[in-house]
Amino acid sequence: MKLEACEVTKRYGNFLALNGATFQTGDAARVVALLGPSGGGKSTLLRVLGGLLLPESGEVRQDGLVLPHTEDGALKVLRQNGFVFQGYNLFPHLSALQNVTLPLTQVHGQTAQQAHERAVELLTRLGLAGHFHKRPAELSGGQQQRAAIARALAPKPRLLLLDEPTSALDPVMTGEVLDVIRELAEGGQQIVLATHEISFARKVADWVVFLANGRVEESCLTASFFNEPSSSLAKTYLTGLSKYR
C-alpha cells in the first residue's frame, strides 16, 4: 500500500488542525504509525486518510487513487475502511454481537445468517466468546475495544485505521489490545495507527509519519525514524517519551 497526502488542511473553527500536511509512504508500507505530540494533528490526519473527514484543501491518495471530495463519494471509500477509536464508540444500546452484525447487514448487504457467523468467528478470535450478548457497559475497557476492533474488521476492510486505541486503557488491557493489533499486522492487514505507544510502533510499524503543529515533520522507514530522527521536534519527542521507560 502507498499512502500519500498533499498539502492537506483542516480547521476546527479557528484552530488549524492540519496545516498543509504532506507526506508519502514507501510503495509497500503495510503498517503506518502516526506519531507526535497531542494536538499535533494525528487523529485528524487519520480521519482524513480514511475518508471520515473531508479536508478543506489538499489531496489524499491510496495506491495512487485520489479520495473523493464529496460526502457521498467519501462514504463509498470509507465503507471499505475500518475505524477504531480511542473511546471505543460502540453503540451502547446494542449487544457486542449486534454492534458487529448491524453494519454487515445494513451497509455490506450480508444476510443475517452470514453476519452472525462472521461476528461469532471474529469475537471468538478476539477473546470475547461468552460475551456476545452483553451490552458495552457490561464489558471492561479492553473487551469493549476488542469488540470495536471486531466491528471494524468484520467487513474485511482494505485499511484498518486505529486512533490511539489504547489511550483509555490500563497497562494490562493495553497489552491485550496491542497483542490483537500485532497479530492482525502479522496476518497481513494494512493498518494506519495513531499512537503514543512508542515501543509498540517501533516493533510493528514499517513506516512512521511524525506530526507536530498540524504539519508532517518526518516521514520515513521506522528504523531510520527511531535510530536517526532528522527533525529537532522528533528528537525532543523521542527523548521526552523514553525518559521513564
Partner: peptide, 20 residues
C-alpha cells in the same frame, strides 16, 4: 462520537438516525 462511529461503520444519514 456516536454520530462519528455511525459514519465510520458506513451508515448514511437515514441509517444513522434509524439505527443509532
Amino acid at each position: 462520537s456516536q454520530r462519528e462511529a455511525a459514519r465510520a461503520v458506513g451508515f448514511d444519514i437515514v441509517q444513522t438516525y434509524r439505527f443509532v
